[in-house]
Design a protein around this nucleic acid. Sequence first.
DNA 1: TATCAAAATTTACGCGAGTAAAGTTTTTGT
DNA 2: ACAAAAACTTTACTCGCGTAAATTTTGATA
Lengths: 340, 340
Amino acid sequence: MKIRNMEEFAAVSGISRPTVSKYFHDPDSVRVTTRQRIEAALAEYDYRPNFYAMNQNRKLTKTTGIVVPYLADPFFGEIVRRIEQRCIEAGFSPTVFSSHGDPAQEREILDNLRSLKPAGVLLAPLGRISDRAAIESFCADVPTVLFDSNIEGMGEAFIGSDNYSFVSQTVEYLSRTGEPPTFFEMRNPANPNANKRRNAYIQMMERLGHDPSFIRVDGEGWAFEEIGRQGAFKALDANDLPSSTVLCSNDRLAIGLLSACYARGVRVGRGVDCALRVASHDDHPFSRFTCPSLTTSAHDYEAVSSNVVDTLVQITEGGRSAAPRPERLFPARLIMRDSA
Amino acid sequence: MKIRNMEEFAAVSGISRPTVSKYFHDPDSVRVTTRQRIEAALAEYDYRPNFYAMNQNRKLTKTTGIVVPYLADPFFGEIVRRIEQRCIEAGFSPTVFSSHGDPAQEREILDNLRSLKPAGVLLAPLGRISDRAAIESFCADVPTVLFDSNIEGMGEAFIGSDNYSFVSQTVEYLSRTGEPPTFFEMRNPANPNANKRRNAYIQMMERLGHDPSFIRVDGEGWAFEEIGRQGAFKALDANDLPSSTVLCSNDRLAIGLLSACYARGVRVGRGVDCALRVASHDDHPFSRFTCPSLTTSAHDYEAVSSNVVDTLVQITEGGRSAAPRPERLFPARLIMRDSA
DNA sequence: TATCAAAATTTACGCGAGTAAAGTTTTTGT
DNA sequence: ACAAAAACTTTACTCGCGTAAATTTTGATA
């Protein structure tokens, strides 16, 4: 016998439909004996309430949207994995979306998300190229927590990493143990973190009494490894390195740089036989497997992902507070490996 | 003025509600003049039909589920990215889910998906550890296309890569240009492709008149790079290599192997100064950036992703045919890089 | 201009569950 | 054992839209 709706299921379980409805909303809100009767029937008839009918009249659904700029980037893969896990633990049903680096798709995703009436949305925006107006109007309708990339004033909160903490540690370490680093970055980064890292680099170098210098590579899009590799070839072949120590804006550029160094026979590392030291930021999941393994500043993935979800829970429970929009930045942890 | 439902929107656009409903179902199904009037009103009042109410009564929704074993694996990141794109082009609304390597989560995802009443589901199962009964009962309810990992007889079709094509090309190439390869793999792989690759290796070696040999590494879970690395350290330190040519079951293991070789100072490549040649299978997005860059057999990502979605379209349009369950396997393309 | 099929409108009902109000039963505390 | 509180049942209405049937309008063609 197939159960077609809650009415029928209530009948076979011997409980009234409104009580069954209450049970599915929160199993602990009904008497123990009724819960047992419902669960007995559940085991026998494997009924599940219609998802669409459920959410149509609910004031707040339990779905949440997780939106990232580029899911094929293992950094986002990792952070999404953790956030998803936390959401489930907090009783939400997360759905993941990727903007694929395209502002039009980001807008499209937010539009679709709006009609899902989610309890909240966790958004890592594209950054500079995002459609600000679209995001602003979305945040006005849906409780949104920004993470990874900040856009001033948007959403209920921002949770991210402290770029100054990242860069100050690498610059300090590299300067203390060898030649001060030159900064390897993209010329026109879409991500606001890149700009913050550049500024932190300049500030830190000046504080230590060194001259900042840059290798700026051209390229658009999200193929950072290839961009870093091509830029590195150019710099290596022109013998255009201001310093024998290179600090990359992020690990993906560094991966490209390391592959170029290997191809050109430039030995990277701390040893006396090495021509170059390379360090970077993010602790990308693959940075421990580069050759040599990459010295880098690590995100506190754990803290960021927990905090993002905790903030969402607070907002959905406490309502959108009048307090000033919080911005929480987590410090980095220097991971010393073989490249510097 | 805020539009609260289709009734109100129909009023301001001067069109009847059923016609508006038809428009949202398919904009081309209404007269051009009516479409223009609706779109004029749309521009002014930015109304969107309630997602939940829409799908409640539709026989077939336009949502599709994409389920993969582990989204933080860039191989799945890449294939999902392409499939998602194709789905959108075909007029579907894809949603992505990751099992995180856990059969319980895979079952949970399928359960949730069932209540979404999707037009179809594109499933890359975990493999050996999947809950077969759960998948079978799911496939009976929801049109499902399997990809990447086959489970005999389940779903409406299977689209994947031809493991024999992968392995025969690498084995042939390696044997022709140097010492025949030994096979580097996990002892208990969860993925059925791994077994097919092993068998293909044995078969091909015997055909060429060589003795198959193996390096089997221990490990559970999805941290293949680390597993490959630890296994490689063990083999290198014990000087336990049956051949100076190593063929890895997949690129992620190879990435771990290469990092171990680098750490131990074992030079990898074709040159006379190299102690080892390494090749692999998949053409993982990072395999061009390893040191040295990795010679590998490439998936036809394009063909697989298009074909998966095309198959879904056929099923949703033509209904579930009585014809035998098709299994489409795409051949690999050998990509020669520096490692072998 | 008459004709007629295609398209739009009107009317009406259904979906599956949320939810509120009023009445009934069960549990709890004393 | 009794009163009060808590949980449950009954009844009835809501939500926003899909969809079918019958009717009217539209616009292309003869």
